[in-house]
Design a protein around this nucleic acid. Structure first.
Lengths: 136, 136
DNA sequence: TTCTTGACCTGGACAGCGTCCATCGTAGGA
DNA sequence: TCCTACGATGGACGCTGTCCAGGTCAAGAA
């Protein structure tokens, strides 16, 4: 994640303290924070950072393909920094915990032509649901 | 869908005109209405029906397993009356149209034990995304 | 280092979706 | 027909996300 800012600077991004803090908050594995959580953590380091800036920065990171948007519960969207390794999600139905998982096989191949209704299908998103060890 | 009301009455549901209208609106194939759309259509037949009642009724139908909740876009949830035949969804990224589809294979089997992190996995949700014929 | 400027940040207003609650109405059994 | 508990109403409220006018500052130029 440290070279993320360099990559963005190379694309003409102005590197500000706000953007740096948002990028730092989104570092790590199995990170799936809501915009509000990102804002709360960013505000610990930069108390005056505004909600609008967090939303803007997250939106930019998503358009640039550096962060994925995940909505597993129909409530707040979550932001997943693990955008460069394809993966799916495993969600606990009780507590909402999310893990990145790597299924075998290619679900795109499982959709026969006669089930495509003329669509040009380009993506598949798989969400596994169950109960995590702590909630069992 | 006509026996739905009978089934619900058998479970102790009080059948009111509001619940009947909501159930009727949700009849058909490839129906994926938002709560607001359900309310608008219900109000054509029963002008005084309230938003709260529509939300309550939809929530009850979901808990009873008669209707599925689908959130494909992170915005309003959609309600799918086709709850008794397992299926997945194909969504147009441009216009948002949703089709029910039936992939081959069993995605649950594609998640190896070492990728389950101790979860008891019980469900999979697959969303295919692409561009529909009208938007091409 | 200082200057300049346009991209960026801020805070608040606003909109969409959904929930809650006190009160009123009514389905369905006695 | 009457009673009553379950359901409907609608308005207030909360959360998530967007937009905007005005103030601020990163980074290149000199």
């Amino acid at each position: 994640m440290s070279d993320l800012l360099e990559r963005l600077r190379g694309r003409g991004w102005r590197v500000t303290s706000q953007r740096r803090v948002v990028a730092e908050v989104l570092d790590g594995d199995h990170v799936h924070l809501t915009a509000d959580e990102v804002h709360a953590r960013a505000a610990q380091r930069l108390p005056e950072i505004s909600r609008a800036t967090v939303y803007n920065t997250l939106g930019e990171l998503v358009s640039l393909g550096e962060v994925l948007e995940v909505s597993t519960d129909g409530r707040a969207k979550r932001y997943d920094p693990n955008a460069h390794r394809p993966h799916q999600h495993l969600v606990c139905s009780r507590c909402g915990t999310i893990r990145d998982v790597h299924p075998t096989g290619n679900p795109l191949a499982d959709l026969p032509a006669e089930e495509r209704f003329g669509f040009t299908v380009s993506e598949v998103e798989v969400t596994y649901r169950g109960v995590c060890p702590s909630c069992t």
